[in-house]
């Protein structure tokens, strides 16, 4: 027989989240769904249009372009980032002199104000006087107009994302690695397993929850990528992500529709599709990691 405390405490413990979410999370979601089936312009609500906004969306090339961009940048930013984070974390997870300093050093990007990221990286990727082109010039290459092509803009944006978040993921991995029992490594060392071998057969399986966590989180964050490309694309119409929408993400497309073109109904439909796409991706992610266990 469970005690009263055992029976009801769990619900009490998770209740605060659900109470606050119900007010500040659920309502916006439902409201957005409602708006998405209406004609809704700057002057407010028009008539009910059913799924028209969604149908229109499926034939909107700008939407598919944004989808493709988002996924492309997601891959370009997430894969190297998580790999580097894993390597960094394992390097930091050992006895070294000045360890605290080293650990804090790689975490510096996390504690940078987003304004600072924007201002520094827009200088680095400046076409005429930027450092990236300056270095390319020293190496004898022609300067690159970073905004003009998909590959170059994606590279620049992925660099910003990677710079900002690698240390963050390394910290999560490090925290998880610290929870791996030491005796596992000691036993492996006695058996003569190399460091690399230990990394793949002990560390990675033991921090699997953390890896799964970061993969899902990076996917979610990547699907909602907004700040970095917006900072990168300067000028008055930055929300379009370049002259040919080279680096417009789904979130930017949604924001453009809702707040720049004043088509709030259409923007809400985009929001819901993003929501569904992320959910789908997360489920797929989850199943893949499950199965490979």
């Amino acid at each position: 027989m469970k005690t009263f405390s055992e029976r009801f405490s769990p619900y009490l413990f998770v209740a605060p989240f659900f109470v606050i979410f119900a007010v500040f999370g659920l309502f916006p979601l439902v409201y957005t769904a409602w708006v998405s089936v209406h004609e809704w312009d700057i002057a407010g609500q028009g008539g009910f249009v059913g799924l028209d906004n969604y149908v229109m969306l499926f034939s909107d090339p700008d939407f598919w372009n944004a989808t493709c961009n988002t996924i492309g940048m997601l891959v370009l930013a997430t894969v190297p980032q998580l790999f580097c984070a894993l390597v960094l974390a394992s390097l930091l997870n050992q006895k070294l002199r000045g360890l605290t300093f080293l650990r804090m050093g790689v975490l510096l990007p996390i504690v940078t104000s987003v304004a600072a990221v924007g201002i520094v990286f827009s200088q680095i990727f400046d076409r005429d006087a930027g450092m990236a082109n300056g270095l390319l010039g020293l190496a004898g290459f022609a300067p690159i107009d970073w905004h003009a092509d998909k590959w170059s803009s994606w590279t620049a944006i992925a660099t910003m994302v990677n710079w900002r978040w690698t240390g963050y993921n390394a910290l999560i991995y490090l925290a998880a690695m610290q929870a791996v029992p030491r005796d596992l490594y000691e036993a492996a060392t006695v058996d003569g397993a190399s460091k690399v071998r230990q990394f793949f057969s002990i560390t990675v399986p033991n921090i699997r929850p953390a890896i799964l966590f970061t993969v899902i989180m990076s996917t979610i964050a990547g699907m909602q990528l907004f700040t970095e490309p917006l900072i990168f694309g300067q000028g008055g119409f930055a929300i379009s992500g370049g002259s040919l929408r080279q680096f417009q993400t789904l979130s930017m497309f949604m924001f453009e529709k809702a707040f720049r073109d004043f088509d709030y109904g259409y923007g809400s439909a985009v929001a819901w599709l993003i929501f569904l796409m992320i959910t789908l991706l997360a489920v797929v992610n989850f199943l893949i990691t499950r199965r490979s266990r």
């Binding site: 999370g25 979610i220 979130s251 949604m254 997360a282």
Partner: peptide, 10 residues
Amino acid sequence: MIPVQMGIIP
């Protein structure tokens, strides 16, 4: 998974 930018008006 809810896109944050959209919640502004509600």
